Simulated scan of single mutants.
Amino acid sequence: MAVTDEAIEKIKDMIVSGALRPGDRLPKESQLAAELGLSRNSLREAVRALSLIRVLDVRQGDGTYVTSLDPQLLLQDLSFVVDFHQDDTALEFLAVRRVLEPAATALACARITDAELDELSAHLDALGPRPSVRQLVDCDLEFHRRIARASGNSVLCSLLDGLSGPTTRARVWRTLTRNGAAARTLYEHRAILGALRDRDTEAARSWATVHVASAEHWLRAAL
């Protein structure tokens, strides 16, 4: 188990056991890290990840609190991602995205400028070799947003932008829990970018399909 995963599990166990209840403030970082036998860095990453999906609420200058989640949800023998999506809604969003994202990418292939492609490349380069979960998810959202804009279809762009929010939690948990997910995401981004540079519409469409489908397949397996 990765260090960040271990930190997340330990915080989750505290919530499930009742040691931390909705509305409770977490102990100071140094104290909590010592209690859980974690480094402060791994604890910090876990808190960031849990705040992204609103399990924790980080209040600047005040502290970090457990949100008002129903603790019974956390007692189920499933991952948080399943707790938050008790039906197939997330899968339905991803299925729609799997239809629209490749279409937008194919349209962008003929319209995107070399300058926009250079900006996309610089955007990926800026992540560095070991991005945090927050950085990777933010990059993923912005990468697809820029391609959608380049499609030239404002309606399609708006639809995809609306689909991004409901699938963010799935992206976060896939990155945290699946070995190699971050590297695979970056590889697929580079493949999409390469196809766009080559003006290869079918390759761009195919890579976009693979990219979205991999997240969908992971969530289907988790559910």
Rank of each mutant, 00 (worst) to 15 (best):
I11E: 03
T105K: 02
L74Q: 07
P129D: 11
D114V: 14
A203N: 07
R171Y: 02
R174W: 06
R21C: 10
N41M: 06
A213D: 14
P27F: 06
S154T: 15
G61V: 07
Q76N: 13
A182G: 09
A148I: 03
G61I: 13
A181H: 01
Y65A: 05
A181E: 00
P71H: 10
L186V: 04
G63C: 06
T209S: 10
E119D: 15
Q31M: 02
A7M: 10
D88R: 15
S158E: 14
N153G: 07
L163C: 07
D200Q: 02
S151D: 11
G162I: 11
D83M: 15
A150P: 02
A95H: 12
I147Q: 01
D5M: 11
L75Y: 09
S132Q: 06
N179L: 03
S206F: 05
I15T: 00
I112E: 10
S79R: 15
H211Y: 01
R111N: 14
L43E: 01
A19E: 14
E101M: 11
G128E: 13
E29G: 06
A208F: 03
E202M: 08
S158K: 11
V133K: 05
S151R: 03
V155I: 08
P22H: 03
D70G: 13
V96A: 14
V210P: 00
D24A: 13
A2M: 08
L127N: 14
A7W: 04
E45S: 14
E142G: 07
K10A: 12
L43K: 00
V55P: 03
L124C: 15
T113R: 10
V133Q: 09
Y65S: 06
V3G: 04
R98I: 07
Q135V: 12
L73A: 15
H189D: 00
R146F: 05
R169D: 04
G165N: 03
